Simulated assay, not measured.
Amino acid sequence: MSAPEETPEPDGQVADAVSGNWVDRWAPEPVRPYLRLSRADRPIGTWLLLLPCWWGVALSAARDHWRLWDLWIILGCAIGAWLMRGAGCTWNDITDRDFDAAVARTRSRPIPSGQVSVKQAVVWMFVQMGLAGLVLVSYNWLTVLVGLSSLGLVAIYPYAKRFTWWPQLFLGLAFNWGAILAYSAHAGRIEWPAILLYASGITWTLFYDTIYAHQDKEDDVLIGVKSTARLFGAATGKWLGLFLILAVTLMTVAILVALLPASGPAKLALALAAPWAMGWHLLWQMRKLDIDDPSGCLRIFRSNRDTGLIAALFLAAAAVL
């Protein structure tokens, strides 16, 4: 006798949403499905998209100094990250609606649960992209081009798990583009520190999204979805250690390339504290991780907001000196 099929959460709540989130408590009922589609009830993704942006503007400012315009770069990136993360998640749910319906954790999402139609989701996606575009065009022309060039990565990502064991790499390529974007918004050019910071973010994404993917590995086997969690299996710890080392090393090199020519020792030391403090937090995650505990994987994944904030705060403090 088969077990009864799981049903969506009461009142349309999504199964893996943050408990007591503002969408389910305070948002007007007609817009709740759209906010859930944008993952507004699960804010960690917005943080993970935003924080590389803040790394980029802080490292760029550390090369010279903070400017009043940087306040808009910081705020605009926050608005843009919220909107583009929402648009990206909407696109992801449109393309993955059949997969989501087959996975216990995701079948309560708005499209498979019937809260939003595919046509409504497409309209909502373009609304979010249009609003994000208004933020983007307030920056210099190079930054506008950098932002537009990320759309291909966003479009490809949902399909990556169909053709490669490394969809987390594609997520990293898309999610960390803001490091280059925000760097260029301050500096007006793209330089090696921005590219190295971008690479550091990619390896950080490989770290945290592999942990995230361990939640769904059993369902992924059944429906034929690929991931680094399935690829690494019991060797996940060794791979996470490699990604930790690469993330710390690449960010360290980015800071050295950016600041060594003219910065004093205090500024350099404060900036270099960013990757090493970040590395200690990643090491703490590895020590807590049990890849066979889905709820624990989700908690550790969410803790990466603090990982990225630690690095952003040290880089911002260095830019003040």
Score class of each variant (00 low, 15 high):
E9K: 11
D16Q: 13
A17P: 02
A17W: 01
S19C: 04
W22A: 15
V23R: 00
P30I: 06
P43H: 01
C53M: 04
L59K: 08
D64H: 12
W66S: 04
W66L: 03
R67S: 14
L71D: 09
W82F: 12
W82K: 02
W91G: 02
N92E: 03
R97L: 11
F99D: 03
P112S: 10
K119Y: 10
Q120V: 08
V123C: 06
G130K: 10
L134C: 14
Y139F: 15
G147D: 12
S150P: 01
G152R: 07
L153E: 10
L153H: 08
A155S: 11
A160C: 09
A160Y: 04
R162F: 11
F163C: 10
F163R: 08
T164C: 09
W165I: 06
W166Y: 14
L169R: 01
A174L: 05
S184R: 06
H186R: 03
H186W: 06
H186F: 09
H186C: 05
L197W: 05
T210Y: 14
T210A: 13
D216G: 02
E218L: 13
E218A: 14
E218M: 09
V225I: 15
F232M: 13
F232R: 09
G233K: 05
A235E: 15
G237R: 15
K238G: 04
W239T: 00
W239L: 02
S263H: 04
A269V: 11
L272C: 13
A274N: 02
P275F: 03
P275H: 08
W276S: 07
H281P: 00
L289H: 11
L289Q: 11
D292S: 10
G296K: 14
I300Q: 09
T307F: 06
L313P: 06
